[in-house]
Simulated assay, not measured.
Amino acid sequence: MPFAARIIGWILLVTGAVGAAAAFVLTVEKIHLLRDPGYVPSCSINPILSCGSVMSTPQAEVLGFPNPVIGVLTFPVLATLGLVVLTGARLPRRVWLGANLGAAAGVLFAHWLIFQSLYRIHALCPYCMVVWVVTITAFWYLTVHNLHHRHLPAPASWRPAVDAVVRNHSVVLTVWLLAVVAAIGVQFWDYWRTLASSGAPRSHPGTASRRPGRPGRGCRAACP
């Protein structure tokens, strides 16, 4: 059995736990912001790495409630699935396909948020980027697992390609994540270059004070 198929339980457990933690922190930040409009979230670091005003953007509440709530509800399910697999339980095909389908919806949503963050809102939310990474990783390894065990149908002529993908699972994931990093680097290149030339990061204007009644002026960012 390929390494990727053997560690699927650990991958689901870790990505589910990390994703749940990030979503929980984002939810808590939202609650603080509702209680105090002048509150500056801990992920507001500078004009680019900032989710200080994310809660007021339409992208932050696609379904009418804060996006992190979706993660709070779904990531624990992923972690539980991984824990069940680690106990040695053999799950039916429909469970694996259901998990893969849910992860596919999550990865599509994450990429929509990536697009919004880079090209519409022009800022990044650090906790959101953690969610992007674990969502992509969970989806990819669920897909690899289902391809290896033939839960996902593939023509016989595709098997050599499928086997190559399973063997090189980490290469595909690395290229995928590096593509996202490259897009971030290109989009905010002017800012990174300014930081490099100045030798010190610019302070975020919204982090100067957390006193009530003084609203933070963070950059707009998209967050799941």
Rank of each mutant, 00 (worst) to 15 (best):
L118T: 10
N67C: 07
A208S: 09
P155S: 07
L91D: 00
T15N: 12
S42E: 14
A182D: 02
S203A: 15
H169T: 08
T15R: 11
W158Q: 12
W112L: 09
V14D: 04
A103K: 05
V166R: 03
K30I: 08
T74H: 12
H145A: 11
C219H: 14
I11G: 11
D36P: 01
G82C: 02
L78E: 06
W189L: 07
W96V: 00
F3V: 15
R214Q: 14
R94Q: 13
H148D: 15
W140T: 09
I121K: 06
P41H: 00
I121D: 14
A164K: 15
H204C: 15
R159P: 06
C219N: 15
W158I: 09
T207Y: 00
A222N: 01
R214H: 14
Q59M: 06
A222F: 05
I184A: 04
A221Q: 08
L26V: 02
N46S: 12
I121E: 15
T135L: 04
V134I: 01
W158H: 14
T135E: 06
E61R: 15
E61T: 15
V25S: 04
A183D: 10
V172E: 00
L34H: 06
V171Q: 13
L86Q: 09
G206C: 02
C219P: 11
S50P: 03
L113A: 14
T143S: 05
S157G: 04
T137K: 04
V14K: 03
R150N: 09
A179D: 10
V172C: 03
L13P: 03
R6I: 04
L86G: 00
P41F: 00
L91T: 00
N168L: 15
S203F: 13
C51N: 02
I121R: 10
T194F: 01
L178N: 07
V40H: 10
S117D: 09
R35K: 10
L147H: 04
V25P: 05
M55L: 05
P160S: 10
P224E: 06
I45E: 06
I136E: 07
H148P: 11
L142M: 12
A104E: 09
G82L: 02
G102V: 07
I7V: 15
V171D: 07
I136T: 10
P215I: 10
S157K: 13
S198P: 05
L195F: 11
T74K: 12
V62N: 10
G64A: 04
V40R: 08
L113M: 15
S56I: 08
W112V: 07
A60K: 01
F109T: 00
H32D: 06
A200M: 10
Y141T: 03
A123F: 07
G64T: 01
V14N: 01
G106H: 04
C219E: 12
P224A: 05
V186C: 01
L152S: 02
W96F: 09
T137M: 06
T143F: 12
P212T: 08
C219Y: 13
A104R: 05
S197N: 12
V107W: 13
